Amino acid sequence: MFSPQGPTARELAVQALSSVERGYDLLAPKFDHTPFRTPDVVLDATARELAALGPFEAGLDLCCGTGAGLGVLRAAGARRVVGVDRSAGMLAVAAEADERGKANGADGPGAADGADRRGGAELVRADVRALPFRSAFDLAVSFGAFGHFLAGDRRALFAAAREALRPGGLLAFPVAAPPRVGSRGYWLTWGFDAAMRVRNALWRPPFVMYYRTFPLSVARAELAEAGFAVGTVPLPLPELGERPDGTPRCRLVLARRP
């Protein structure tokens, strides 16, 4: 499915009937061949904006998955790069990709030319709601992960991220504009979320993955509740284009630990 190297329909069904952690362990070897991986255009656009705000010395990727976002941290100047995820399978794929990058002298999408790779990335298996770090980073990022957390869990995640950042540290992540009501994208995401809610009502363990629970207004409110100072106007990512009304399709949320 998706590509010749991607998962089959049967493999996706098995994943969907597993827990989030087990599901991603199963999907990990083929994850980068699915649409679930954050597109390079999003990574590159984020990297350019953060590089202009940096340099940052130590960077943390929350729910790093197979490591697609690690190059964004390096592009922002981070010499220490750490990725955290609960899935051992995803971390194993990230470690392999990072080793290949070291051998080839390249960081992949979002990486700055000539980025310093000494030491490679540190990959930590941990629950991002209870991070094993205190005031250790000046930049944290996350890509495509917040749909795996219900509201209460996101609050714990943001509180943990705040503690992991140094005073003045920055948490950054892209948020896409919601699809226009009645559009194909609107009905696709609505239908997916409805199916997932039915699945979770009938089957255990739950698999939390929703697309319509985290608009920009909710993100800003939850960040403020966690003690972040949130910019009044999130940065537009012009590479992602505009909607018919002229507003950006995607913005970069920037939240600082005071």
Results as ranks from 00 to 15, higher is better:
P4D: 07
G6Q: 07
P7G: 08
T8K: 12
V14W: 01
V20G: 03
E21P: 01
R22A: 15
G23T: 04
H33W: 13
T38L: 04
P39W: 05
D40C: 13
V41T: 11
D44N: 13
T46K: 06
R48Y: 05
P55I: 09
F56W: 07
A58F: 07
A58N: 10
G59R: 02
D61N: 07
G65L: 03
A68F: 03
A68E: 01
A78N: 11
R79W: 05
R79A: 12
V82T: 15
G83S: 06
V84W: 01
A92S: 09
A95S: 13
E96Y: 06
R100L: 09
G105W: 04
G108E: 04
G114Q: 12
A121N: 04
A121S: 15
D127T: 08
R129P: 01
A130S: 13
R134Q: 15
A140T: 13
G144Q: 04
F149L: 15
L150T: 13
A160F: 02
G168M: 14
G169V: 03
L170W: 02
L170T: 14
V175Y: 06
P178Y: 11
P178A: 14
P179R: 12
P179W: 05
G185I: 14
A195I: 07
A195H: 07
N200Q: 11
A201H: 11
F214L: 10
S217I: 09
V218N: 05
L223R: 03
A224H: 07
V230Q: 06
L237C: 11
R243N: 13
P244L: 12
T247I: 07
V253E: 06
A255L: 05
R257T: 08
P258L: 09
